[in-house]
Amino acid sequence: MRSTSCFAFSMAALLGCGEDIEIPRPRTDDNPVLLWVGDTADLPMCPDGRLDYWDGWADVRTAPQYQNECGTCACSPAACVLPDMVKAHEAALCADEGIEVKLADAADPPGHCIKTSPPVPGDAFASVTIGPPTMAPACQASAQFTPPPLGGTFARACPWTGEYRTGFDGLVCIAPEHDGSCRPGFSARFEFKEKIRDARTCTACECGEPVGGVCVADVLLFSDTSCSDMLISINGIGTEEEICYGAPADSPLAGARVVFARDEPGTCSPKATVSLVDGTIESGATRTFCCSSEEIIYGNVDN
């Protein structure tokens, strides 16, 4: 019994099969390869997982729909920041250098009761300096973008294994003759430059100075660690400068609460509205492939 099967490469249609089809085969000194060609940089694996392949491309550029742009720049708000410490003074009117009492944990979350560190005994606490809330000095720019996809024609040349393969969507190709021509049976000609690397980057987004915004805090100080016996309530502290308050006589400082009275972050505008593609792709020498018919790439006859 005699049967014939034919398989077609994706670049062309399946042809009818016949017993007398002559399938071109490369010579051993033709440097034969299996060549995949497509419009995506997502290249297939070579047959048998071979890693000794050659990658190339032609007419490669940033895909036109991206207009050489990576993305639109944006800036986060300039956040308000609660006071993170006070100074407890042994002298009235904040006349001495004072001891720093940290309030950093009071902002997470705002308003919860914290133990002051260190606690201040009543005989060493006559006045207190309250630092102002602050606004972040800068806004955070958009994360660094990655370049948009490349458009063009891409190729991967895999080693010829000595037989036509149905599991790899490619043409069988050989090197051109010494005069640059392609011999009969391998007349489909392709030229690609070697793919070295995509060296494109995206310009960084930058933000201008913060504008607007209002940051106002209330600071409540307590003589106990459970924040139930309030000593001082200092309300409406703006960002202008630190202020001094007197403390009740012989009262220790052991707890605190810090909250926002107004939390309206500042805003920043991007210095450039768009992050642009910067740099180029790097290519090597041009390589020419002479390939078998773009239609039939495999056939066999079983007797």
Rank of each mutant, 00 (worst) to 15 (best):
R2F: 07
S3R: 11
S3A: 01
F7H: 15
S10G: 01
L14P: 02
L15T: 15
C17M: 03
C17K: 03
R27G: 06
P32C: 11
V33I: 01
V33D: 05
L34T: 06
L35D: 00
W36S: 15
D42W: 13
P44K: 01
M45Q: 05
M45I: 11
M45S: 04
C46W: 09
P47I: 07
P47Q: 02
G49S: 05
Y53C: 04
Y53S: 13
W54L: 11
T62F: 13
P64T: 11
Q67P: 00
G71T: 03
T72P: 09
C73Y: 07
C73M: 09
C80D: 00
P83H: 09
D84S: 11
E90I: 02
E90R: 03
A92L: 13
C94D: 03
A95Y: 08
A104P: 12
D105L: 12
D105P: 14
C113Q: 04
I114W: 08
P118Q: 01
P119S: 12
P121V: 01
A124C: 05
F125E: 04
A126K: 12
A126D: 08
T129C: 09
I130F: 13
M135W: 06
S142L: 06
T146V: 09
P149N: 01
G151M: 05
G151F: 11
A157T: 02
P159L: 00
G162I: 13
R165M: 05
G170A: 03
V172T: 08
P184V: 03
A188G: 03
A188D: 07
E194H: 05
D198L: 01
A199R: 00
T201V: 09
P210H: 12
V211Q: 03
F222C: 04
T225K: 12
S226K: 02
L231W: 00
G238Q: 01
P248G: 02
P248W: 02
P252G: 15
L253F: 07
A254G: 08
G255V: 00
G255H: 01
R257Y: 08
A261W: 13
G266C: 10
G266M: 11
G266F: 14
T267A: 12
P270C: 04
K271W: 05
A272T: 14
D278M: 11
G279V: 10
C290F: 09
S293N: 06
E295I: 14
I296A: 04
